[in-house]
Each structure stands twice: as structure tokens, then as C-alpha cells.
Design a protein around this nucleic acid. Structure first.
Length: 537
DNA sequence: TTAGGGTTAG
């Protein structure tokens, strides 16, 4: 029987629909159908990939590892495990390629142990498998171990690839390992080619260790084509290092995309630089970037951090596709500005929105924090109970600390203690934040016994932290134990500890940004653009 | 047919 060739051209997928009868599914070579699953995944059509996979599972007896591997990357943790189990049952889980895909899948889900188990099971490890292991440690926040993998690769005489160098550079950036990163730079140069991806990694590395000039040198000495990511990496790096002039110059070289604007806005947010933030907002509106949810989230956060709550709300209202971060930022904006009622109302709208956006643990922390700032005890209790009961989210120590603070401010020490005991029963280990919240609650309620219990634990956690000692000292002062206050002050003097000065960013950011940055910012605009405020500004 | 670079909330 002659089977029409199935090529993966742009019209391939619609072509397949016309062929999607049992005959085609039964008789086309499995490799072509596997490629089709892969193509669906790459085109972000997971439903089509899934449907085809299920049909093949039902109809074909010759499915192989490559029927599964494309689906591993986009799978959820539970689905990924199910795929793994099916692969074992089908007998297609061995071999370097499927094992590497499984290792990668587990590392994307943060399951380091499962990844390592899969790696141990590999009979033959090629450079891709080693690179996947290196990325695994990097993803799981263990850059030291990632460098350890590099050393092991050296011992095993594995020839390093460009992928290896990329991941090693990321590890160096994370560890601020300047010398090792410079050695990798040498290796990159020895490759003798203009490599956009590796150069981007180099730029990010140099900016991460504060060597912006080296990053600029990599950028400007690269002869080949430079893509958006590379520009964005440098813009972000310059901004992170406070080199606004260079950042705007790089942005003026090309038409910057939304990511570059996002980087600038994050910095404006951190520095409370409302002036530059508004300028960037103007340009973003003209460029049509306000369709970008991520950029708008940063924009609203910037306004919120600068205390411009109504501007933040205008941005929020204009976001067409609000995600959980949009809602959480706005709730947090109300909370931090003392608008607890508005925060609760917005949280209610989020839950009733009819959209598929569900609150996550950060959302609940923002709501609890809003209740705390506004003294809304009953709402705080509702929120805390709702987390687990309605949304199946287990409270983390931060939630307990905030909740204990809510209850403590209301002076109900028995409820405070009950919340603490509940946390212990749930197997949650108290953090310094929890002990501080408990201590404050005990201070307010003059509960000497429990307060001392919290104080001792707090001091055990970090005995040399001056702010903790001062807190404990304040507790003893509140209950009139001046002998303990004197003793703690004496300890501080002996240890040479000084309480850190309180920091406030309010009003400072505006002085950080000299006026000439505005000129630099104007350089990234289109010629016809002016700085006239538009939209919500 | 498995691995790599840039941007959001506590």
C-alpha cells in the first residue's frame, strides 16, 4: 500500500485533519506520527498532541519512546509521572534519549531526586544527558552541584558542547564566580565563531558579577547578527547595575520589545522612580505593549510601589487578560497602601470573576497582609481558613506569621497560640518571622511565659542578629523586666552589635535619577513621539 | 529524537 508522504510543512497539521481516519493512524509509519506529535507540541497545540497520542495508544502496537518524549516537557508533574509509568509498562523507557527526556521532565518539576534516579539508571550517558543533569541542578537552585557536574564531565572525558558552556555560565552568574566564568569566556572565544546564544549568556554572566563594561565589550565586539534576547540581556544587565545611559543607548539601537521595557520598569519600581516609569509607560502605550500582561503587571506594580494607587488601578483595569499576578499585585497594592477594604473587595471579585484565574499562595499572603495592615481580623480569619478548605493550599510559615500578627494585633492571645499549635501539628517549621509575630503578640498581651518561649527560639535561630535582640529587649521592657533588658543591652555591647538603621525608600528614588536619563529615555522613542502623557497618565 | 540565552507578584 502506498502512503502519501507526510511532511511537516506549515500546512501539515490541517492536512492531517483530513487524513485523521483510522486508516492513516493505522498505516502511516510510527516515526511520522511521532514527528507530528512533536510538531503539535512545538506549535503549542497540546490538545492536538494529546489526542493523537491517545489514538496511537489505542490503535498501534508499535509506539516507541518518541511517541512519549515530546509530551514529557509540557506535562504537569502528575501527568509526567503517568507518562513515565506508561513508558515502563510499554518497555520504552530505557535508552539514552528517553532517559534524558525523563530526567529533564523531572527537573522542570523540581523533582531533583527523581531526576538523579533516572540519571543513575542510564547505561550510556552522552553529552546531552550530562548537559541535562547540569541544567537540572541549575533549575533546582544548586549551582555548586552544577559546577560539580562539569568537573565530573571532565573526569569522564565528555567533550563539552555549547550547551554545556551556556549552563556553566549561568552557574557562574549565580555563584558570582568571576574567574571560572572568564575561563569559560576563553573557551567560547576558542570556538572561533560568533555565537549569539553563548554571547548572550556571557553578557548575562558579566552583568551578574557587576562587570558591565565586559558585557558591553562582548556585545559591541560581536560581528554577527544580534537578536532581541541579546539586546534584552544587555539592557536588563545595565539596568540592574544602574547603568541607565548604556541601557537606553542599547535600546535605541533596535526597536526594543516588551521585555526590554519590562526590565526598565522593574528598576523604576525598585528605585521608586516614578518619573522614568511614566516616560516608559508613554512609550509602551504607543508601541502597543499594553497588550502584554507581564509588562502591565510590572507597570501596575511600579505605580503601586510609588504610592500611585489610582494609576495602578487604571493599569489593572486595562489589562485584557489578567493573570494571577495581575490580581495579586493589585490586591497587594491596596493592602500596602492601607486600603484593606478595597483589597478584600478585589479578592472577592477575583474569586467571582468567572475566569480561570485562581488565587495562589502569594495571593493569600497579600490578602492576609492587607488584613494585617488594616486590622481586619474577621476577614483575616476567613482568608486563612479559605486557603486550605476551598483552594487546597497549605499555609507556609509566612502565612502563619502574618495570620498570627493579625490575631496578635487584636489582642487575642489564645487564638494566636492556637494558630501556632496548629502550625506545629501540620508539621510546619517556624521561621524567624513566626517567632517575631508570636513575640509581638505576647508583648501586646503581656503574656510573659509564651513570649519568653518565642524569644528564646528567636535568639536561638540567629543569636547575632541585632534587630532580633532589640525585639526581645522590647518584649522584656513591655512586661517590665528591666533586668532582662539590661542584660540584653550588655550582650549587644559585648558582641559589638548595632541595630541596623531602618530603611525607607519613600521619596529617595526621585533623587537617584538625574534629569539626563530622561534625555536618554527619549532616545528610545520614535521620532514622531513626544513625551506628552497619554492614557492613564 | 533528549540539553542552552532576555522580562512580572510575597
Amino acid at each position: 500500500m502506498r502512503v502519501r508522504p507526510l511532511t511537516l510543512t506549515s500546512n501539515c497539521l490541517s492536512h492531517f485533519h483530513s487524513l485523521s481516519d483510522h486508516h492513516q493512524l493505522l498505516h502511516r509509519p510510527i516515526s511520522e506520527l511521532n514527528s507530528l506529535i512533536n510538531s503539535y507540541v512545538r506549535r503549542a497545540q497540546p490538545i492536538s498532541a494529546w489526542n493523537l497520542f491517545r489514538s496511537l495508544r489505542r490503535l498501534r502496537s508499535d509506539i516507541d519512546a518518541h511517541t512519549f518524549t515530546p509530551l514529557l516537557r509540557p506535562s504537569s508533574p502528575s501527568l509526567g509521572k503517568q507518562f513515565h509509568a506508561q513508558m515502563i509498562r510499554t518497555g520504552v523507557d530505557s535508552g539514552t534519549v528517553p532517559k534524558t527526556a525523563l530526567l529533564d521532565m523531572y527537573s522542570r518539576h523540581g523533582s531533583l531526586d527523581d531526576s538523579l534516579k533516572v540519571f543513575d539508571e542510564m547505561l550510556h550517558r552522552d553529552v546531552v544527558a550530562w548537559n541535562a543533569l547540569l541544567s537540572c541542578f541549575l533549575r533546582c537552585g544548586q549551582p555548586h552541584e552544577a559546577i560539580g557536574v562539569l568537573r565530573e564531565m571532565g573526569r569522564e572525558n565528555v567533550e563539552l558542547s555549547e550547551f554545556t558552556l551556556c549552563s556553566v555560565l549561568k552557574s557562574c552568574a549565580s555563584l558570582k564566580a568571576l574567574e571560572l566564568g572568564r575561563q569559560v569566556h576563553g573557551l567560547v572565544v576558542s570556538l572561533g565563531r560568533d555565537l549569539v546564544v553563548l554571547s548572550t549568556a556571557l553578557i548575562d554572566f558579566y552583568c551578574s558579577v557587576g562587570c558591565v563594561d565586559h558585557a558591553l565589550n562582548v556585545f559591541y565586539s560581536l560581528n554577527g547578527w544580534k537578536d532581541d534576547m541579546m539586546h534584552n540581556s544587555l539592557v536588563s544587565g545595565c539596568i540592574r547595575n544602574g547603568r541607565y545611559g548604556e541601557a537606553f543607548k542599547v535600546m535605541s539601537l533596535v526597536k526594543p520589545n516588551a521585555v526590554a521595557f519590562t526590565s526598565v520598569l522593574v528598576s523604576c519600581s525598585e528605585k521608586l522612580d516614578l518619573v522614568t516609569g511614566k516616560q516608559v509607560h508613554c512609550v509602551a502605550v504607543r508601541r502597543g505593549f499594553t497588550f502584554d500582561t507581564q509588562l502591565c503587571n510590572v507597570l501596575l506594580d511600579m505605580y503601586a510601589k510609588c504610592g500611585k494607587i489610582s494609576l495602578a488601578r487604571s493599569v489593572f483595569d486595562g489589562i485584557r487578560r489578567k493573570d494571577v499576578i495581575s490580581w495579586t499585585c493589585m490586591i497587594d497594592a491596596y493592602g500596602r497602601n492601607g486600603c484593606g477594604k478595597e483589597a478584600i473587595e478585589l479578592f472577592q471579585s477575583m474569586r467571582e470573576d468567572g475566569s480561570e484565574v485562581l488565587p495562589n499562595s502569594v495571593t493569600f499572603l497579600s490578602v492576609l497582609s492587607a488584613c494585617d495592615h488594616s486590622g481586619m481580623v474577621e476577614e483575616g480569619k476567613k482568608c486563612f481558613n479559605m486557603m486550605r478548605e476551598k483552594y487546597g493550599i497549605d499555609p507556609e510559615p509566612e502565612h502563619y506569621a502574618c495570620f498570627i500578627d493579625v490575631l496578635g494585633r487584636a489582642g487575642n492571645i489564645e487564638e494566636v497560640w492556637s494558630a501556632y499549635q496548629n502550625m506545629i501539628q501540620q508539621g510546619t517549621k517556624p521561621t524567624a518571622g513566626v517567632w517575631i509575630a508570636l513575640l509581638n503578640a505576647c508583648s501586646l498581651s503581656q503574656d510573659f511565659e509564651r513570649g519568653e518561649f518565642a524569644a528564646k527560639h528567636l535568639l536561638l535561630l540567629d543569636p547575632d542578629k541585632a534587630s532580633n535582640i532589640v525585639l526581645v529587649s522590647n518584649f522584656y521592657a513591655a512586661i517590665g523586666r528591666w533586668d532582662c533588658v539590661d542584660e540584653l543591652r550588655s550582650i549587644m555591647r559585648t558582641k559589638g552589635l548595632v541595630k541596623e538603621a531602618g530603611n525607607s525608600w519613600i521619596g529617595e528614588g526621585f533623587n537617584d535619577m538625574p534629569g539626563h536619563y530622561l534625555l536618554d529615555c527619549s532616545a528610545i522613542q520614535l521620532e514622531s513621539e513626544s513625551l506628552t502623557p497619554v492614557g492613564v497618565i
